[in-house]
């Protein structure tokens, strides 16, 4: 009994992986096509973004309240923003253009989201790693102190971004307000997200509140991994994990609702 259940789950997993793979290939071709550098845009685009911001901040001699080199600061901060912000942006309104795929019974709403999340998360990650290696190789950046902490911080930000993305993506099927509100909201939360400051540089009173913003905890973790003892990072991992778990539950519930309510053309 237990064995046959496992086989069923194994079979379902292989079907789902097949579908996600097919959607991934389709998404890559649709978005990047076969022109010029094709799917390399997946990470060249975020790299351009991050490089631009790094240059701007360097030129403006941005005040960030620590003695860290501005390149390192911009790279860690802006890469993290791309990670949690692009996932929801790509998932909001993702169902509508793919409604006709629902005629293929193996394709479910969640697969459409997962394919886009893998693409978006992958692009942001490759961009972050490539730029890090590049800056390290030309001597603008010291190699990170503790890679595992970076990975943990990065994965937690990705989890946050992914669950937020699925939640908003499924909700946007019900109301266009989600899309309208997400744009200004994602802009307004940018300065609060920890990308442009270290928590340690804030007044003690503000520190307490700013850690209630989930992304801030993740960015601080990434920076601790990068700079080790050079910075004094503030974060609350259990709080961040709780936020992500709650958001994941809400997201899955909303996907169930979307599954029930969608009407293909």
């Amino acid at each position: 009994m237990a064995h046959s259940k496992l086989t069923t789950i194994g079979h379902s997993a292989s079907v789902q992986w097949r579908v996600i793979h097919a959607l991934l290939m389709r998404e890559i071709l649709t978005r990047y096509g076969r022109h010029n550098i094709g799917f390399l845009w997946l990470f060249v685009e975020p790299m351009l973004f991050t490089t631009g911001v790094t240059l701007l901040w360097t030129l403006a001699r941005s005040v960030h309240g620590s003695n860290l080199p501005i390149v390192a600061f911009a790279l860690t901060g802006y890469s993290a923003v791309l990670l949690w912000r692009n996932m929801p942006s790509r998932c909001i309104g993702a169902i509508e253009p793919n409604l006709s795929l629902m005629y293929h019974r193996n394709v479910r709403v969640i697969d459409i989201f997962l394919a886009r999340l893998i693409l978006e998360g992958g692009g942001a990650t490759i961009s972050f790693v490539t730029l890090s290696l590049f800056y390290i190789s030309i001597g603008w950046l010291d190699p990170p102190e503790d890679i595992l902490t970076i990975v943990m911080g990065w994965l937690l930000i990705a989890w946050f971004g992914a669950s937020l993305a699925i939640f908003l993506g499924a909700l946007s099927e019900k109301s266009e307000l989600v899309e309208k509100i997400w744009h200004p909201l994602s802009y307004l939360t940018f300065p609060l997200s920890g990308a442009a400051f270290m928590v340690d540089a804030l007044p003690a009173e503000a520190q307490r509140y700013v850690l209630y913003v989930p992304m801030v905890n993740g960015v601080e973790l990434v920076r601790e991994g990068y700079f080790g003892a050079h910075v004094h990072a503030h974060y609350d991992i259990p709080f961040l994990i709780t936020c992500c778990s709650v958001l994941t539950l809400l997201a899955l519930a909303q996907v169930t609702v979307a599954n029930r309510e969608i009407t293909p053309e």
Binding site: V19, H21, A22, R26, L29, H104, N106, V107
Partner: peptide
Amino acid sequence: DNVRFISRIYN
């Protein structure tokens, strides 16, 4: 591409 997509979905 569309043929490939359907082929992948249905293994």
